Amino acid sequence: MSNSKLKTKKSTKLNIRPYRVFSEEFKREKVAQISAGEISILSFSKLWSVSQNTVYKWIYKYSPDHKKGTIMVVQKDSEAVKLVELQGKIAELERAIGQKQMIIDYQDKLIEIASKELDVDLKKSFNPGP
């Protein structure tokens, strides 16, 4: 009866990965590849069975461009250029509106003077029909 218990009992053997140590040269080389965009962090971590957290630690340690806590502002210069362009466009539109308003004021004054000269209210009696 004891033999049947041994046969039905499942194995509890754990598959433990061996402890690995990567050289500093290897880490620097792989960080350079990741920084150059040759391989993604996800692909590298799957290929070498290394956690993504470990890869990020290597990047923070060995990459001159990626330090922990560094904030990268993207498109700061282009936003400033865009702001200047928009301000220029606003000024141009305000100038055009000002010119149109001057033309309207001129025409109103011309109608007013003509109405006084002809002794007819041109604004009310003007009929643009055929």
Rank of each mutant, 00 (worst) to 15 (best):
M1V: 13
S2N: 09
S2G: 11
S4P: 01
L6F: 09
L6N: 10
K7F: 06
K7M: 06
K7P: 04
T8V: 12
K9W: 15
K10W: 14
S11I: 09
T12G: 14
K13G: 12
K13F: 08
L14F: 15
L14N: 14
L14G: 14
N15I: 07
P18K: 08
Y19M: 13
E25P: 00
E25V: 07
E25M: 07
F26I: 03
F26T: 00
F26E: 00
R28I: 07
E29T: 08
K30F: 02
V31N: 04
S35G: 05
A36W: 03
G37C: 03
E38Q: 13
I39H: 07
I41K: 15
K46V: 15
L47F: 10
W48V: 06
W48D: 11
V50R: 10
S51A: 06
V55G: 05
Y56A: 00
Y56W: 14
K57Y: 02
K61H: 05
Y62H: 10
S63I: 00
H66I: 08
H66N: 10
H66T: 14
K68V: 03
G69Q: 00
G69F: 01
G69S: 02
T70A: 01
I71E: 00
V73A: 04
Q75N: 15
K76C: 13
K76P: 08
K76H: 10
K76L: 14
D77C: 06
S78V: 09
V81G: 09
L83A: 12
E85A: 01
G88M: 14
K89Y: 07
I90S: 05
I90Y: 01
A91T: 05
R95G: 13
I97D: 11
G98S: 06
Q99R: 15
K100R: 07
I103E: 02
I103W: 06
Y106M: 10
Y106T: 12
Y106W: 11
Q107K: 11
Q107V: 00
L110Y: 09
A114P: 07
S115Y: 02
S115H: 02
K116T: 01
K116F: 01
L118N: 09
L118V: 08
L118Y: 10
D121R: 06
S125A: 03
N127L: 07
P130M: 10
P130C: 09
P130K: 15
P130V: 15
P130Y: 13
